[in-house]
Computed example of a mutant assay.
Amino acid sequence: MKITVTVEDPTNDFQERLLALLAEHTGQVHTDTTWTKERASRYYLALPARAQRIVKEAADRKGYVSADDLRDGEDTSLRGHSAALKRILDRGVREGWWPDGMEPPIQAQGPGFGKVVGYRMPDHLTATFRMAINNWSRDW
């Protein structure tokens, strides 16, 4: 049997009781951590503009965008963008946009110590994010 439950704007008491019930039966509960077009769109729209560009470029470039391709004009720093990408993933869990345990849709690539040589999106997510971004852009 498969049961799907969606609760919009639950009271705190109801949410706590439901989560406690689910925790009691954790062995039988499967959490859907799949990136859907709707989840990808919400993630993308919640990002600041420069972080949106990273996600869009990676999706459009088959999953990878180099730091050099993201640098333009006078603004050559990519400092702080990885934090925004992670912050929105965490915010989505807090806001109930998606469950905890979602795969990060994009990761900074580099030798470490803050140096970023590019960003990678897993291959299986590029089509979903490209569709979400393109559909959003077309609607506006």
Results as ranks from 00 to 15, higher is better:
residue 41 S to E: 15
residue 21 L to I: 12
residue 82 S to K: 05
residue 137 S to L: 14
residue 27 G to V: 01
residue 26 T to W: 05
residue 1 M to Q: 09
residue 52 Q to P: 11
residue 95 E to G: 06
residue 110 G to D: 04
residue 3 I to P: 03
residue 67 A to F: 06
residue 86 K to V: 14
residue 18 L to E: 04
residue 107 Q to T: 12
residue 98 W to N: 05
residue 86 K to D: 09
residue 13 D to M: 05
residue 10 P to M: 12
residue 105 P to N: 08
residue 30 H to M: 11
residue 14 F to M: 09
residue 7 V to P: 02
residue 25 H to E: 06
residue 22 L to Q: 06
residue 106 I to A: 07
residue 88 I to R: 14
residue 9 D to R: 14
residue 98 W to L: 06
residue 88 I to F: 01
residue 113 F to P: 02
residue 124 H to I: 07
residue 74 E to P: 00
residue 67 A to N: 03
residue 80 G to Q: 04
residue 23 A to Y: 04
residue 47 L to D: 10
residue 100 D to C: 00
residue 17 R to W: 12
residue 130 R to Q: 13
residue 53 R to E: 11
residue 94 R to C: 04
residue 114 G to T: 06
residue 116 V to D: 02
residue 81 H to Y: 01
residue 3 I to Y: 00
residue 112 G to A: 11
residue 104 P to H: 08
residue 118 G to M: 01
residue 100 D to P: 00
residue 30 H to A: 11
residue 117 V to K: 12
residue 4 T to K: 06
residue 60 D to F: 10
residue 139 D to A: 13
residue 117 V to M: 07
residue 18 L to D: 07
residue 92 G to N: 09
residue 131 M to Q: 14
residue 59 A to P: 15
residue 121 M to N: 04
residue 90 D to E: 14
residue 20 A to I: 00
residue 119 Y to R: 02
residue 137 S to M: 13
residue 29 V to C: 12
residue 104 P to A: 15
residue 71 R to F: 06
residue 75 D to Q: 10
residue 10 P to L: 12
residue 51 A to Y: 02
residue 107 Q to G: 04
residue 41 S to M: 15
residue 99 P to L: 04
residue 28 Q to V: 10
residue 117 V to E: 06
residue 111 P to V: 10
residue 120 R to K: 15
residue 43 Y to K: 03
residue 28 Q to R: 09
residue 97 W to A: 08
residue 89 L to I: 07
residue 122 P to S: 00
residue 11 T to N: 05
residue 35 W to H: 12
residue 52 Q to L: 06
residue 108 A to V: 03
residue 9 D to V: 00
residue 2 K to M: 09
residue 86 K to P: 00
residue 82 S to C: 06
residue 72 D to Q: 08
residue 63 G to M: 00
residue 51 A to L: 05
residue 4 T to Y: 07
residue 124 H to K: 09
residue 125 L to H: 03
residue 19 L to W: 02
residue 81 H to T: 02
residue 86 K to G: 09
residue 61 R to H: 14
residue 59 A to D: 10
residue 109 Q to Y: 00
residue 82 S to F: 05
residue 127 A to I: 07
residue 32 D to W: 05
residue 93 V to G: 04
residue 105 P to K: 10
